[in-house]
Simulated scan of single mutants.
Amino acid sequence: MMRRFKHLFSQFLSSTSDQNFLRFIHLIENLVSKVLAIAMIVVILFAVIDLGRFLINDLQTGNDVPLLKHLIEIFGLFLNILVALEILENIAAYLRNHAIQLELVIITALTAVARKIIIYDSKEAGGDYSGLAFAILSLSISYWIVRHVNHSQPKE
């Protein structure tokens, strides 16, 4: 019995070698990335349907200028979809290259902050833009540094 246990234990240790474990991690990463991509596609489709429904309802109200009344809300819906598309692109880039592309992540963050600025209600927030300004400045500097480093390195 003890000999059998030692044999099973040694087989377990050999099957959990670093290489096998890393293959298992890679498999899980790919699976999770694909599930996230599918989930993001569903989110994007629902967001597009929501935008279409909003536009149709707004046009059917019969107001003189229905779209202008809700222009900021419409821009917010459009930009939500653009941010979701950027996130989907990040996931697709990860699946292609098996690495997170920092430049894409920063661009996605800049798009999200730009969305926040476009739909920003200064009456509700008291008109303080300092946090958003700092976020934009930080992200812009980060983007410039990453882009400069990426384009100054020789291509392989």
Rank of each mutant, 00 (worst) to 15 (best):
M1V: 09
F5V: 12
H7K: 14
L8F: 13
S10T: 07
Q11R: 11
L13K: 11
S14T: 09
S14L: 07
T16W: 13
T16R: 11
S17E: 01
L22Y: 10
R23Y: 05
F24V: 08
F24M: 08
L27H: 13
I28N: 02
I28M: 09
I28S: 03
E29Y: 10
N30R: 09
L31H: 04
L31Y: 08
S33M: 10
K34L: 06
V35S: 04
V35D: 02
L36K: 07
L36V: 03
A37W: 04
A39R: 12
M40A: 02
M40D: 01
M40I: 00
I41K: 14
I41D: 08
V43H: 03
L45R: 05
L45M: 07
F46S: 00
A47L: 04
A47Y: 01
V48G: 01
I49L: 05
D50S: 06
D50L: 01
L51S: 00
L51F: 09
G52R: 04
I56G: 00
I56W: 10
L59C: 10
L59R: 06
T61F: 10
T61R: 14
V65P: 01
L68E: 08
H70A: 03
L71S: 07
L71Y: 05
I72M: 05
I72G: 01
I74F: 00
F78W: 04
L79M: 13
N80P: 00
N80I: 01
I81K: 07
V83T: 09
V83S: 05
A84Y: 03
L85I: 12
E86Y: 15
E86R: 14
L88Y: 08
L88A: 06
E89V: 08
N90E: 13
N90W: 06
I91L: 11
I91N: 04
A92R: 15
A92T: 09
A92M: 13
R96Y: 06
R96T: 05
R96F: 05
N97S: 14
N97H: 15
H98R: 15
H98W: 10
Q101I: 15
Q101C: 09
Q101Y: 11
L102A: 07
E103V: 04
V105S: 05
I107Q: 10
T108Y: 12
A109C: 13
A109W: 12
L110M: 14
L110T: 06
T111C: 10
A112Y: 08
A112E: 10
V113F: 11
A114M: 13
K116G: 06
Y120E: 09
D121T: 05
D121I: 11
K123W: 05
K123A: 10
G126I: 03
D128K: 12
D128V: 07
S130Y: 06
L132K: 07
L132P: 07
A133L: 14
A133K: 12
A133I: 14
A133V: 12
S138N: 11
S138E: 05
L139K: 11
L139Q: 06
S140W: 05
S140C: 12
I141Q: 04
S142A: 15
W144P: 00
I145S: 02
H148S: 09
N150K: 12
H151E: 03
H151D: 01
S152L: 07
E156P: 12
